[in-house]
Design a protein around this nucleic acid. Structure first.
Lengths: 192, 192
DNA sequence: CACGGATCCTAGCACCGCTAGACAAGCGAG
DNA sequence: CTCGCTTGTCTAGCGGTGCTAGGATCCGTG
């Protein structure tokens, strides 16, 4: 049975290679450049091999998104862990979030902009996505204010961050005042 | 010279037809369904005719976006005109904005999600876009608070609305609590 | 009336996501 | 050891995309 085991391992390894390559290619040249042909060429297999791992391009995007969600959750937790006050934690969270979006635009797109075939805000939402939201909730729930549902507050704060992230990257917002926007957002939305 | 004049008119008319048809098709079946072939068929001309009016699909999207910007500015001004207090005006603005995004998803996408080849937040930004931002600024500037730049505040508020609009429509936010999110946003961000 | 320029269409390019079917390699059974 | 079968991979191709070259046709003008 060790032969089958080895094959299983190799297959899993190749799947990781596909996702990593897709991500890399998207990060380098944008998702438009991630075609099944180019992707297949980069991993040095033919196109149909991709379809033995994923149903289609959507699922590949989805896989990158899940990977990104895990990393984002970690980034947010790392940024907030060492900070003392609740409001300062939220400011750190906001900066970490926007920083992640800026440094990993393709991953961020896979998560929130493109269709990766993932379910959001439901029971059958994949664990990494739930956990990423949970990571936000941990810090944001503390500053929701009296009588305000922490979940609802987190959604709102997150939506604001998302709006800033996407509009900035699309050139709709001048990047110079990023820090001031964050400060204003935290000052107004977060309650002591 | 009247013949040339008539031709010029007919040409302009056909251009409007192209934009209107693209918008209609996008609103009915999504932008993915707006292919140059389908569009050409609907306006009962061949594909190359489209390219005698626009450089490519991008520019058609851009044209729809400009049309949408004008309408959105009007919608926002109409919603805020009859409302008395500054904060109530802002609440009305927020609802009008989100309502516009929900009722015209394809137009909203053309404006802020897709690449229409338009310049934003610059001198050479097309007038309708500047005016749409101005429409937001008119009401939002009043509640920026002391020492806060009205433009910066408007950008932030707008980004929040944009985040809510996109995440809601993409199924990332449950639609039930839309009104509560708006109230919370206005209560916290807008200063009396 | 005949010409010439504007206008439009047919046909085709290179690319896309995706899949059917041929082919080879490697396993277990006799 | 050999045969047959499963499993894995590839070649080739389908229908679609955005876009364009080049020929035909129409129509106002001299």
């Amino acid at each position: 049975m060790s032969v089958q085991e080895r094959k299983r391992r190799e297959r899993a390894e190749r799947e990781r290679l596909i996702v990593a390559t897709a991500r890399e290619l998207a990060e380098q040249q944008g998702w438009d450049a991630v075609t099944t042909r180019r992707l297949a060429e980069r991993i040095e297999y033919s196109q149909p091999v991709l379809y033995s791992h994923f149903r289609g391009k959507r699922e590949i995007i989805g896989a990158v998104a899940l990977e990104g969600a895990t990393e984002m959750a970690a980034a947010v937790r790392a940024a907030t862990a060492a900070v003392a006050g609740p409001r300062e934690r939220v400011a750190a969270l906001a900066r970490a979030y926007l920083d992640f979006a800026e440094r990993n635009p393709a991953v961020y797109d896979a998560l929130f902009q493109l269709d990766g075939g993932l379910a959001y805000a439901r029971e059958d939402t994949p664990e990494p996505l739930k956990d990423a939201f949970a990571a936000l909730l941990e810090s944001l729930g503390e500053v929701a204010g009296d009588g305000v549902d922490p979940g609802l507050f987190t959604e709102l704060f997150w939506a604001s961050l998302h709006g800033i992230a996407t509009l900035t990257r699309a050139g709709r917002l001048p990047p110079e005042y990023a820090e001031q926007r964050v400060r204003l957002l935290v000052n107004r939305l977060a309650v002591a």
